[in-house]
Amino acid sequence: MSKQKAVLSDEQVKARRGRSVALAVTLAVLVAMFYVITIVKLGPGIMDRPM
């Protein structure tokens, strides 16, 4: 089956770029947030686990 690509308008390209940046920032913040949450919740016990 042949396919046809939708062409984005300038407005859509600009909006997508903004959303992409926001998503990247959100993901980076989530990574940092869960890292700190882990440290705070486990505290010194983070190193105290069966190997």
């Binding site: 089956m1 042949s2 396919k3 046809q4 690509k5 939708a6 984005l8 859509q12 997508r16």
Partner: peptide, 12 residues
């Protein structure tokens, strides 16, 4: 979704 492929024949 911004860049998708549409089946030919469907109205845009």
């Amino acid at each position: 979704m911004t860049m998708v492929e549409q089946s030919q024949g469907l109205h845009e």
